[in-house]
Simulated scan of single mutants.
Amino acid sequence: MADQAMKSLGSVLARQGILVAFILFMVSFTLWNPRFIDVDNVFGVIRSSAILGIMALGVTFVVIGGNLDLSVGSMLSFSAIVVLDLHENPAFGPALAIPAMFAMTLCLGAINGFLIGYLRLNSLIVTLGMLSAIHGLTLTYSGGQNMDIANQNETWFDVFGRGEALGIPIPVLIFLLLAAFLGIVLAKTPFGRKVYAVGGNGTAATFSGIPRARVVFMTYLISAFCVATAGLIQASRTMGAQNTVGQGMELEVLAAVILGGASLLGGSGTIFKTVIGVLILGFIQNGLLLAGLEFYVQFVVTWIIIILAVWLDIATKRGKLWSPIA
């Protein structure tokens, strides 16, 4: 009976190692500073992590499909600048600015999807090039200027970044609802199974009749949609944006996805674990801030905690703390 219980516990740990790491991390920081687990602090961390989290949801599809998307940071800058500029255009206003921004961002995602999915170009090279291209496009579009909404008290645009529903901040609500929806798409639909198949073995998936190019194309559209959503929240939260607001975020997004257990080789990962990865990053920064550590110390401690979390996840899956091949 005891052996069966231990096997069951080991099975749970093997499947949810990153969740165990997250719980241990939360308990440790709570013991260090009880304010860490305050409801207001928790909601504040989730709210501040919502933009990164929403972007990570889309990139999870791309990574599971066996590719990378390093253009999401500059794409976020583009989305925020465009929606703010069109908001101030009398011919658009917020009602038309939002769908127009989504359409333009999806076009950028479609370019990524076409080059990588249909032309079979390397995703690292393509999206790294798109990072620079979109950054240049953003600067050209904005004329190198930052964007702001002039009459902030006369618009409902701030509801996406500052509003609440049933006591829950709208950014948090959007993040959780989108995570639930995309989690179902990935885990319970034929399309989700095709994403796993393409990422696990693209050649075998093609011979099995799965339209690899179309699946890859769709993963980049999903990523672009998530970036547009994050851009809308970013612009609405601050009612303005710098043209470099998303610079560097592509690495944070990728770190959250990989921290959540997705493999860079493709074929593995879940939306739920990506959410955990996002929360780990958010709560690490918050916990170190409450601890009063200097910002340069926070970088080192954050790296150590991420390494320990990933190590625990891998160790629970293989049942050993050290690799059997040393």
Rank of each mutant, 00 (worst) to 15 (best):
175 F>K: 02
4 Q>A: 12
52 L>C: 04
225 F>E: 05
31 L>Y: 13
149 I>V: 03
30 T>H: 13
220 Y>E: 15
112 N>W: 04
137 L>W: 03
50 A>L: 00
172 V>H: 06
306 I>Q: 08
250 E>K: 06
7 K>C: 10
37 I>C: 11
42 V>D: 11
79 S>M: 04
140 T>I: 04
18 I>M: 05
288 L>W: 02
240 G>P: 09
81 I>R: 00
148 D>K: 08
165 A>V: 15
171 P>E: 05
5 A>W: 06
298 Q>M: 15
291 A>T: 14
170 I>M: 12
22 F>S: 14
235 A>R: 00
184 I>H: 12
123 S>V: 10
302 T>K: 14
293 L>A: 11
291 A>F: 13
322 W>R: 10
71 S>L: 02
202 G>C: 12
178 L>Y: 04
232 L>I: 03
309 A>H: 03
210 I>C: 08
66 G>T: 10
156 W>Q: 07
96 L>E: 09
214 R>P: 02
325 I>V: 12
207 F>I: 11
323 S>E: 13
165 A>D: 07
160 F>Y: 15
294 E>P: 12
30 T>Y: 15
245 V>K: 02
231 G>Q: 03
292 G>W: 13
54 I>V: 00
9 L>C: 10
278 V>T: 04
172 V>S: 06
243 N>R: 15
65 G>S: 14
41 N>D: 14
192 G>K: 14
53 G>I: 03
19 L>W: 14
158 D>W: 15
192 G>N: 14
102 F>S: 01
97 A>H: 06
136 G>D: 04
183 G>S: 05
87 H>V: 00
310 V>K: 08
136 G>T: 03
92 F>Q: 05
70 L>V: 04
319 G>F: 08
26 M>D: 08
283 F>G: 05
64 I>E: 08
89 N>Y: 05
62 V>K: 08
66 G>D: 14
185 V>T: 07
137 L>N: 05
4 Q>L: 09
48 S>F: 07
102 F>K: 01
157 F>A: 02
140 T>R: 08
140 T>N: 07
37 I>L: 14
143 G>Q: 03
90 P>D: 03
119 L>M: 03
248 G>A: 09
247 Q>S: 12
97 A>N: 07
79 S>H: 01
77 S>L: 01
124 L>R: 03
56 A>F: 06
21 A>R: 08
160 F>W: 15
122 N>K: 06
236 S>E: 01
270 T>F: 08
112 N>P: 03
18 I>W: 01
189 T>S: 13
193 R>G: 15
223 S>V: 06
56 A>T: 10
122 N>W: 06
7 K>T: 14
262 A>E: 05
264 L>H: 13
63 V>C: 09
267 G>P: 12
82 V>N: 01
173 L>W: 05
38 D>G: 14
61 F>W: 11
282 G>H: 04
84 L>I: 02
239 M>P: 00
239 M>T: 02
65 G>Y: 06
291 A>W: 09
8 S>H: 06
124 L>M: 06
35 R>W: 15
314 I>Q: 12
266 G>E: 10
121 L>V: 03
5 A>Q: 13
178 L>T: 13
16 Q>D: 06
75 M>I: 03
